[in-house]
């Protein structure tokens, strides 16, 4: 991201310096203003979902969900490491609910646990599952569309579900097949 930011910033600045230097500072300030508006919108979204997630966590609902996912996870990730499995299950549950922010710490914990067993297969598989996104409820997108006055903000639910299921299954299947053949 550092390289991209620097390149795009410098090239755009140079182009503006030639064509319309008086627009340079105003557009930077406008960017800052937009960032703040966006932050307010995001806070509203996360306040709702992280509040709910906290209730689910405190009432033991998240743990129960994690427990239900554990046996299946053990088979898929080829591991018997209990604490790694619990973190994996929590990571997947958070992802499914569309709270990616809450999912990341669990993934990092699981990967650290798997490092002890030198189970790179499970580490990379977890990375692939997270990097292809596995949301059932695209909370951020729905909230943004509601804010912009959509008539039915949740109508992207079905195409989103199909697309996200495809991306994860496709990538995981290719990786598993590749792992069997070439051990990457």
């Amino acid at each position: 991201m550092n390289a991209i930011f620097t390149v795009i910033f410098l090239v755009s600045a140079a182009a503006l310096a030639i064509t319309a230097p008086q627009n340079f500072l105003p557009s930077l300030l406008k960017g800052g203003e937009k960032a703040l508006t966006m932050a307010v919108t995001l806070f509203c979204i996360y306040a709702v979902w992280m509040g709910l997630a906290r209730l689910a966590e405190k009432s033991g609902l998240s743990k129960a969900a994690a427990k239900a996912l554990k046996p299946a996870c053990g088979k898929i990730f080829k591991t018997h490491n209990e604490s790694a499995l619990e973190s994996i299950a929590m990571n997947l549950s958070c992802n499914l609910l569309g709270i990616g922010g809450a999912a990341t710490p669990y993934a990092v914990k699981a990967i650290g646990e798997l490092e002890k067993d030198e189970n790179t297969f499970a580490q990379k598989l977890l990375f692939i599952i997270n990097a292809t996104s596995v949301q059932v409820v695209p909370t951020t997108v729905i909230a943004l569309r509601t804010g912009a006055g959509s008539a039915n903000a949740a109508d992207i639910f079905l195409p989103s579900l199909l697309a996200t299921a495809f991306s994860t299954l496709f990538a995981a299947a290719i990786y598993m097949a590749g792992y069997k053949k070439w051990r990457f």
Partner: peptide
């Protein structure tokens, strides 16, 4: 803030 500033420059400069 940083990213929005970059985006804004990128748009305004017509790049």
């Amino acid at each position: 803030a940083a990213v929005f500033m970059m985006c804004e420059l990128f748009e305004v400069s017509a790049l």
